[in-house]
Design a protein around this nucleic acid. Structure first.
Length: 264
DNA sequence: GGTCATGTTGACTA
DNA sequence: TTAGTCAACATGAC
């Protein structure tokens, strides 16, 4: 689930619930998710401080801690945040929990343990060190987009999902963007003519933006989205044709062969 | 009850 | 530079 729109929704959720309150206790329930820091270090860096503001780059959520650096949250293949007071609202796979002085707490749930909790002095440093591409929504104009994809021999789907090219797009949203742009996932990036690239760029923005407006909740997505039809043999929401499953770079993707013409 | 697939990334190989 | 495979992990579907 957690691609750019989902993480953006988490960010807004954290902003609306958890800022400017004293962290009274830090519970690390599973240290496997910690990357490059120990339980004790994390506790020390958070205890008695406040969450001040947030930032997002691609699928990474950064949380500024007053008078200190930034907490980095990545959600892996399964993960979300929940703010609650009552134990009955506590999710099942809490890996980190911050208890605030107002009696509420913020939980980071990560069932499959493929997420990461890290610490960085500044988000910019992390982005640079990891060689992340520009954020797909915030930091990508058409010229940059064209530049990043031009000359790439890889399939357009792989290129869209490459976090070092563009940050934030995963398997689900790359399928969705390509479906909306009527481009086949296996088309080579470098073979897309400028007008196609423009269509793709606009679809990218539209899809991510709309998904965020729907709070990244598939049930609220507009009817013309592919997501809920993502399955072998399901009906294309545009032409009614049969959706096909394809394999690409070890991932499975879904296409409408009628709307998305295969490359020659 | 085994096998397979699943939205993540990263390491490795060719 | 790129694609393919595997591994990390937990869980549900078949």
């Amino acid at each position: 689930l957690p691609e750019l729109p989902d993480v953006e929704v988490f960010r807004r959720y954290l902003n609306a619930t958890s800022l400017h309150q004293k962290v009274q206790a830090v519970h690390v329930k599973h240290s496997r998710v910690l990357k490059g820091l120990t339980r004790r270090t994390l506790q020390k860096r958070l205890s008695s401080r406040e969450l001040e503001k947030t930032a997002r780059h691609g699928k990474h959520l950064f949380v500024k801690v007053t008078g200190n650096g930034w907490l980095r949250l990545h959600f892996g293949m399964s993960g979300f945040l929940r703010y609650y007071k009552n134990r009955s609202r506590q999710p099942e796979h809490v890996r980190l929990r911050l208890d605030f002085s107002n009696g509420y707490c913020l939980a980071y749930d990560n069932q499959r343990l493929l997420g990461q909790i890290g610490w960085v002095p500044r988000p910019e440093k992390f982005i640079k060190d990891e060689n992340l591409g520009p954020d797909a929504l915030e930091d990508l104009d058409f010229e940059k987009f064209r530049q990043l994809l031009s000359g790439r021999k890889a399939s357009i789907k792989s290129a869209l999902m490459d976090q070092n090219a563009i940050a934030g797009i995963g398997n689900i949203y790359s399928d969705e963007i390509l479906f909306q742009a009527k481009i086949h996932p296996k088309a080579a990036a470098k073979n897309l003519v400028k007008s196609k690239l423009k269509t793709l760029y606009e679809a990218l923005h539209q899809v991510l933006q709309e998904a965020i407006e729907c709070r990244a909740d598939p049930e609220k997505f507009p009817g013309h989205f592919l997501v809920s039809h993502r399955g072998e043999g399901k009906r294309c929401p545009r032409c009614g044709g049969s959706i096909k499953k394809i394999k690409l770079a070890g991932r499975s993707g879904y296409v409408c062969p009628g709307c998305q013409k295969p490359p020659d």
